[in-house]
Structure formats: structure tokens, C-alpha cells
């Protein structure tokens, strides 16, 4: 049984084929990157995996369970959580509340429990709050526990998104450009943190533009261009792959080379 197996998935929007017959797999404990130029369909793949889009073809399996036609909420329950390219924090809520929202599916009391403040309610709330503070500590946000999400600097907000995804008790984290908007020092720290996540047992699928990040951290890389998979392999293989360089620098280079 594979960890994440994606076979021949296709996403058609009217006449546009945003993702075309893409297959890839992620093994447990890996850090795998999905790269490609703007508009290559990377975020679309994330939206397909998490059930935001209903895919038009192919199969996706996570720990032996088919993901196709599952509701996003059920996919989160299976253990896949994500962050967003354009931050989507609950900006009017506090950092700790953001993380507690992430724990929603694992908080095991019902509506009337909260109305009557039962023992179960108090125990669960207390456990989750402690866990939330621990997660925030691990990601270096201890000093922002009480802050409102919108008041944090950009880089810190990205961390809150990761913390929120961790809070769902996910096994697979889909990180959509986590280093965007971070300065080199913050990026360096983020790399350390992502490795640490892997060491703690998380598996990570990453979309990233920053080649420095990708080459540094990935066990394996998949390259998308115009919705198609054009290459996959180890970081050093990808760095020397002609098709990949072409895709990033435009097709011109190839023509010139042929002249």
C-alpha cells in the first residue's frame, strides 16, 4: 500500500486542460517538491488532492483510500492538510484560535457539551489549548500566541498557516509556496523547520518557486509545465535537465541551440 499515489489525473476547465494526465507518488517520510513556471498547474494539483475541485479524470489514493469524489472535509480527516499560496488565515482571530480551529475535527465534544460546560468539554478544551501552545512553540511563535493573525508580519503568518495545518493531525502536509515573501534568513529558518517536521514523522509535498529552497530540501522533484509532467527525479538530475531549463527560461534557448 502506497502513501500517496496519483495516477493520470486530469483537470479540464471548459476548453482549458489545466492538469493533463499527471501521475506521481509520495512515500512516507519524504519531502517531495512540485515545481514549474507560473500557470503550470501546481496549485490546481493541490486543489484536486484536497477536494476543492472535482477531478475530470484519473485516480488518487492516500493510504489505500480513494480520494476522488471525497468532500474536502473528509480528506482532511484522512490526514491531508494544506496551506495556501495567498495567505488564508482567519485574520480576525488570534493565533491560538487559528490553531484551535485546525483542531476542530479532533475536538470530541458536541454542541450541548459546550452549552453546559460538561467535564468532557473542559478536558478537551484544556488539552487542545495546551497542544496548540506546544505546536506554536515548535514553530517559534510562542511570543505571538495571543496576537491577532492579521497583526503579524507576512513570514510569521505563513508559519501560522503551517501550525494550523499541523493541528489537524495530518500525516501529509501540502505546503503551497511557504517561503514566498520571506527574507533569506527567514527562509533558512523555514528550511530547518520543514526538515524538523519530516523528522517528526510528517510527509511533505511542497510547491515552491525559490530554487534555493527546492534544491536544498527535496528528496525528489516533479516538474510541471502547461499542465503536463515534464520531468521527475533527484534534485541534481532536475537541475541538469534540458527540458526543465527550457520550461523555466522559455523555448527560445532550444531554438538558438539548434541554429
Amino acid at each position: 500500500m502506497g502513501f500517496l499515489n496519483v495516477e493520470n489525473i486530469t483537470m479540464q476547465f471548459g476548453g482549458l486542460r489545466a492538469v493533463d494526465n499527471v501521475s506521481f507518488h509520495v512515500d512516507q517520510g519524504e519531502i517531495v517538491s512540485l515545481i514549474g513556471p507560473n500557470g503550470a498547474g501546481k496549485t490546481t494539483v493541490f486543489n484536486m488532492l484536497t477536494g476543492v475541485y472535482r477531478i475530470t479524470g484519473g485516480t488518487m489514493e492516500f493510504l489505500g483510500t480513494a480520494l476522488v469524489d471525497k468532500m474536502p472535509q473528509d480528506i482532511v480527516k484522512l490526514g491531508i492538510a494544506r496551506t495556501f499560496q495567498n495567505l488564508r488565515l482567519f485574520s480576525k482571530m488570534r493565533v491560538i484560535e487559528n490553531v484551535l480551529v485546525g483542531m476542530h475535527i479532533n475536538t470530541r465534544y458536541r454542541f450541548f457539551s459546550s452549552l453546559f460546560r460538561t467535564a468532557l468539554f473542559r478536558r478537551e478544551e484544556s488539552e487542545k489549548a495546551v497542544r496548540a501552545v506546544e505546536i506554536l512553540k515548535s514553530i517559534g511563535l510562542l511570543k505571538h500566541v495571543n496576537s491577532y493573525a492579521e497583526s503579524l508580519p507576512y513570514g510569521e503568518q505563513r508559519k501560522v498557516e503551517i501550525a494550523r495545518a499541523m493541528a489537524t493531525d495530518a500525516k501529509l502536509l501540502l505546503l503551497d509556496e511557504p517561503a514566498a515573501g520571506m527574507n533569506p534568513a527567514e527562509t533558512e529558518e523555514l528550511l530547518r523547520f520543514i526538515r524538523q517536521l519530516r523528522d517528526e514523522g510528517y510527509t511533505i509535498l511542497l510547491i515552491e518557486h525559490d530554487m534555493n529552497v527546492v534544491m536544498n530540501i527535496s528528496d525528489r522533484i516533479y516538474v510541471l509545465d502547461h499542465g503536463r509532467l515534464i520531468a521527475d527525479g533527484l534534485p541534481e538530475e532536475i537541475a541538469n535537465n534540458r527540458d526543465v531549463v527550457d520550461a523555466y527560461l522559455g523555448g527560445e534557448r532550444k531554438k538558438h541551440a539548434e541554429d
Binding site: 495556501f84 488565515l89 480576525k92 482571530m93 476542530h104 459546550s114 452549552l115 453546559f116 460546560r117
Partner: peptide
């Protein structure tokens, strides 16, 4: 009653939906 609901997972789900419904969905909130 309102305060009890607000300071519980139900209230946090409500506020999350108000802030960003898609993100709330992605947290597994129905």
C-alpha cells in the same frame, strides 16, 4: 448561552466561516 457557544469549537467554527469559508472547509469544518 451566546458566550458559551462563542468560546467553544462551535463558536470558533462560526468565526472561521465568517473570516474565510474555504479555509474553514480545509480545516475539516462542515
Amino acid at each position: 448561552g451566546c458566550l458559551a457557544v462563542k468560546n467553544s469549537k462551535t463558536g470558533r467554527a462560526f468565526l472561521a466561516i465568517k473570516d474565510d469559508e474555504l479555509a474553514a472547509t480545509m480545516m475539516g469544518i462542515k
